[in-house]
Measured scan of single mutants.
Amino acid sequence: EDAPSSDDLEQFAKQFKQRRIKLGFTQADVGLALGTLYGNVFSQTTICRFEALQLSFKNMCKLKPLLNKWLEETDSSS
């Protein structure tokens, strides 16, 4: 699987934040939901840093598919 470019990540982080707010979730909600869904709880700080593009590139790449999946799950259930 190709690693996303930093442009991709930036684009995704923006879209993710907009969708999250529109769906009415806090950063902490998302962190907990990831724990429920995938067994990895993320702190509010981590989600905040992801949205602000302040995580390392490697961590951004790791989180992106999880957050993407969460969006898909959340979209389909709302």
Rank of each mutant, 00 (worst) to 15 (best):
L32S: 14
L53G: 13
M60Q: 00
F16E: 03
N40P: 07
L63D: 06
D8Y: 01
E73Y: 08
E73H: 11
L34T: 06
L67A: 03
S78D: 15
E51A: 02
D7W: 05
L67D: 09
V41G: 12
F42P: 07
F50Q: 04
L67R: 02
D2V: 15
E51H: 00
Y38M: 04
Y38G: 10
L9Q: 06
C61G: 04
E1Q: 15
G31K: 02
K22I: 02
P65F: 08
S78I: 04
D75I: 11
A33H: 06
S56L: 00
N40E: 12
Q27R: 04
Q18P: 00
K64T: 05
S6Q: 15
D7K: 15
Q27M: 07
K58P: 14
Q11L: 10
T74S: 09
A3F: 15
L23C: 03
T36Q: 12
E72S: 08
E1F: 14
I21A: 05
M60K: 10
Q11K: 13
C48P: 08
F50Y: 10
K69D: 08
K64D: 02
M60W: 01
S56R: 04
D8Q: 07
F57Y: 15
Q15N: 15
K17W: 00
N40V: 09
A13G: 01
E72H: 11
T74P: 05
T45I: 03
S56E: 06
G24D: 02
F57D: 11
A13T: 02
E10P: 05
G31T: 10
S77K: 14
K62E: 10
Q44N: 12
N40W: 07
L71A: 05
K17E: 01
S5I: 07
A52P: 00
K62N: 13
Y38E: 06
P65L: 07
D8M: 12
I47G: 01
E51V: 03
E72V: 10
T45V: 09
K62V: 10
F25K: 10
K62H: 12
F12W: 05
D2I: 15
A13P: 04
S5K: 13
D75V: 10
D8T: 04
T46I: 09
L63M: 10
D75M: 05
W70Y: 07
K22D: 13
N40I: 10
G24I: 00
L66V: 08
S78F: 08
K58V: 07
L71M: 12
A33W: 08
A28Y: 08
Q11W: 02
A33M: 06
L32W: 08
S77Q: 14
V30M: 02
W70V: 03
K62M: 10
E51L: 00
L66W: 06
E72D: 12
C48W: 05
T36I: 08
Q54C: 04
L37N: 06
S6D: 14
A52R: 12
S77L: 10
W70T: 03
N68L: 13
G24P: 02
K17G: 04
Q54F: 01
K69G: 09
A52D: 13
S43Q: 06
L71S: 02
G39E: 06
L23W: 08
S6M: 15
E51S: 02
F16S: 03
T26H: 09
V41L: 09
E72L: 11
